[in-house]
């Protein structure tokens, strides 16, 4: 029971989260149809695409917060629906785009709620719960803010507190839905650096992002979506081309080498040059 490792994924068996024949719809509106996707183990996968391409919808299905109307998502070859809900939550964490911070909650209490899948009616706050929360807050740099109310924090601090909550869950797989939205630019990079570090420490991450250059810089595996289908996937350096960007986003551009990270960098063509 308490065999939860302190650094979850290092040396752990690669998790295999796969989606096959996925059809995703909100009521009658079909967003994704017939999609197959396997989350590559040990990678930092970034999903990108224009608005309403179904990237967040796909992430929700992978995190089982959206029930597919056809097809299925499996973990280790078994459909998610065959697991106990709490058992999945010990292996697969997800931070949605706009979670709601309860009134009057402190950072410590918020992070503590991430321990739910490891708790029971009688074991509501074990020593390992305490330790996991401390590690999660330390790792995201919110330990100093533990007793502050979440509502008082800046946008960047708040986002790190939420990521700490997802980390406290101690899952080898972590899904983040547009974690940089609503943040100013410095805090965006702070969150992305945090994601990169979590990946280096051995977790498998899937992150939905809006910004192509950020995606190309931080992804070790890039997935490009358009109109509910995956158009291209692979290492950013291999798949990001001017033709792809024009085709998917309708943006004529030039691809240059990012002088800092040596990843592809999209530079839109000046209006006169179009």
């Amino acid at each position: 029971m308490s065999a939860a490792p302190s650094a979850p994924a290092i040396g752990a068996a690669p998790s295999s989260l796969t989606a096959t024949g996925l059809r995703l719809a909100y009521d009658d509106r079909v967003i994704v149809d017939g999609l197959d996707f396997a989350v590559p183990a040990g990678e930092l996968t970034v999903i990108i695409g224009p608005n309403a391409c179904g990237k967040s919808t796909l992430l929700k299905a992978l995190a089982r917060t959206l029930e597919p109307s056809a097809g299925q998502v499996s973990l280790d070859g078994k459909p998610l629906s065959s697991y106990r809900s709490k058992d999945i939550a010990k292996r697969l964490g997800m931070l949605p785009q706009s979670p709601i911070a309860p009134e009057a909650i402190t950072v410590r209490d918020l992070v503590g709620r991430g321990r739910f899948p490891h708790q029971g009616v009688f074991r509501q706050w074990s020593v390992s719960d305490e330790a996991a929360c401390d590690r999660a807050m330390e790792s995201t740099g919110v330990a100093e803010l533990a007793d502050r109310q979440v509502a008082e924090l800046s946008g960047g601090q708040r986002q790190r507190a939420w990521i700490a909550m997802a980390l406290a869950q101690e899952t080898e797989l972590l899904l983040l839905d547009e974690p940089t939205t609503f943040l100013d630019i410095a805090h965006q990079y702070e969150v992305l650096e945090l994601a990169a570090r979590l990946h280096r420490e051995g977790r498998t991450l899937v992150v939905v992002l809006h910004d192509l250059n950020q995606a190309a810089r931080y992804a070790t595996h890039l997935v490009v979506m358009k109109e509910g289908a995956i158009v291209a996937q692979g290492a950013p350096g291999e798949i990001v081309t001017a033709q792809l960007v024009d085709e998917v986003f309708g943006l004529p551009c030039q691809i240059i080498d990012d002088p800092q990270s040596h990843t592809p960098m999209v530079v839109p063509l000046a209006a006169v040059a179009r």
Binding site: K60, A63, R64, T65, R84, S85, K86, D87, I88, A89, K90, L92, G93, M94, L95, P96, S98, P99, I100, R113, G114, F116, P117, Q169, L175
Partner: peptide
């Protein structure tokens, strides 16, 4: 939020 609750089991 429902998404957070569901992903925590």
């Amino acid at each position: 939020g429902d998404d957070v609750a569901d992903s925590l089991g």
